[in-house]
Amino acid sequence: MAKYILKRIALAIVTIWAVITITFVLMHSVPGNPFATENRKIPENIMENLMKKYGLDKPKSEQYIMYLKNIARFDFGESMKQDSETVNQIIARGFPVSARLGVQAIIIALIFGPALGAIAALYQNKAPDYISMIISIIGVSVPSFVLGSFFVQFIASKVDWIPISGWGEFRHTILPSIALALMPLAQFARLMRSSMLEVLGQDYIKTAKSKGISRFAVIMKHAIRNAILPVVSILGTTISNLVAGSFVIEKIFGIPGLGQFFTTSVFNRDYTLIMGVTVFYAMVLIAMMLLVDVAYTLIDPRIRLTKEGH
């Protein structure tokens, strides 16, 4: 196991290097620079000084090597737009916020999604099936910016206890977490329903039933355990999607998370911040994938790690 994980970490480093390289190339092929502003033009020598200050005057290859060296030391440098914080500080401040939102959303989705899916599968084509599927479809039917705006206008501004925007207490997180959770919830519910139906048709379920095990035990012990695999397999991407994709919700609810920087840093051409959030995001994503794979091998009796050996 330890050997497997070490191997995966070594692979992860190669992956991150590839991500850095591609992002670096993409970033510098998009027109524009971080220092342009609408109403004024900056004298050439000032522009040169700004470029020098952030090392942008050097040849691209040198900049690239410099980036790699700094990133190896986990130093993401200075933001080119936000003078008051380094990129490390921005990430250290923003990530816990986004992560908390993301984790809360995933917990909500994991509690209700598979449950809805399982119920739907057990009562296929009966009322509970239709009801749970309609509930989960509603979750994917409204774009998050519409949903978030409705939450603000109809819930947050009416219920005193729920704040409209801001961050700090649990009550600030309720509406944004729910708004974020609906999409993965629906996704989990539907995947669960479909894989559960498949599992229920398997021989081992029939065998278990014929051995006289109670229906409840069969479902809990055999069906759910096997049916949840596809849900687990997309968990990693779902979590990282939530963290990166929460910018709409963060914007609407005024939440100081990391999500917004995935878009604003690109619009601002804040090169260091783009690199910082990208590399960090890649690390989180890869960690998630690794965890999911490990989890997968732990719960799926059919996959064994030893296979990697031969």
């Binding site: 992956t15 591609i22 993409l26 970033m27 783009i274 994503l285």
Partner: peptide
């Protein structure tokens, strides 16, 4: 790698 590259970029 493909999935980690910033989407907006």
């Amino acid at each position: 790698v493909v999935y980690s590259i910033p989407y907006m970029l």
